[in-house]
Structure formats: structure tokens, C-alpha cells
Amino acid sequence: YFQGQLNAMAHQIQEMFPQVPYHLVLQDLQLTRSVEITTDNILEGRI
């Protein structure tokens, strides 16, 4: 994955969860590489 793709995914998640800091979303995406998994992590309070 290149950074631009991760940034696009992070923006997509931020639209759904504007209360979660962008850098935390991006940090999780770098591990998961998945909008779905990061979204689940937010919903389950891991982020």
C-alpha cells in the first residue's frame, strides 16, 4: 500500500467517525490495511 491509498482510506473513515483523531485512524490503518477492520476497531473502542 502506498501512503496516498492509506490517506484516502483514513479520510473515508473520518467521514464516518469525525470524532476520532486522523492520526489515530491512519496509525491503525497502517497495521490493518483495511477500512473494515479499522472501522470495527473504532466501534469496539480499541481506538
Rank of each mutant, 00 (worst) to 15 (best):
S34G: 02
R33W: 15
A10G: 03
Q5S: 10
D28K: 01
H11P: 01
V20S: 03
F17P: 00
F17G: 00
R33E: 07
G4N: 11
H23Q: 09
G4M: 13
T38E: 01
L29K: 00
Q3H: 07
Q27W: 13
Q3C: 13
H23W: 14
T39S: 08
L43I: 10
Q12M: 13
L31K: 12
Y1P: 11
I13W: 02
E15T: 12
N41W: 04
A10F: 06
A8I: 12
T38A: 01
R46N: 05
L24N: 04
E15C: 14
T39H: 05
F2G: 12
L26E: 04
L26P: 00
I47N: 02
Q30K: 13
F17R: 01
D40W: 15
R46Q: 04
N7Y: 15
L29R: 00
N7A: 14
L26K: 03
H23C: 13
G4Q: 14
V35D: 02
F2D: 15
L43D: 01
E44T: 14
Q14H: 15
Q14F: 12
Y1G: 13
S34Y: 04
Q3L: 08
L6C: 08
L26C: 09
D40P: 01
G45P: 01
H23S: 09
M9V: 07
T39D: 01
S34I: 04
I47M: 07
L31T: 10
Q27I: 10
I47Q: 02
R33K: 12
Q14M: 14
E15F: 12
Q5L: 13
M16S: 07
M16G: 04
E36L: 11
Q12D: 07
F2K: 08
F2P: 11
Q3T: 08
Q14L: 14
G4K: 14
N41Q: 01
I47G: 03
A10V: 09
I13H: 01
T39R: 12
F2Y: 11
M9E: 04
L6A: 04
M16I: 09
H23A: 09
Q3R: 10
L26T: 03
R33P: 01
Y22W: 10
P18W: 05
S34A: 04
Q30E: 13
I47D: 01
V25N: 01
Q27E: 11
M9D: 05
N41T: 02
I47S: 02
L6G: 02
D40K: 15
Q30L: 14
R46C: 06
P18M: 04
Q14A: 12
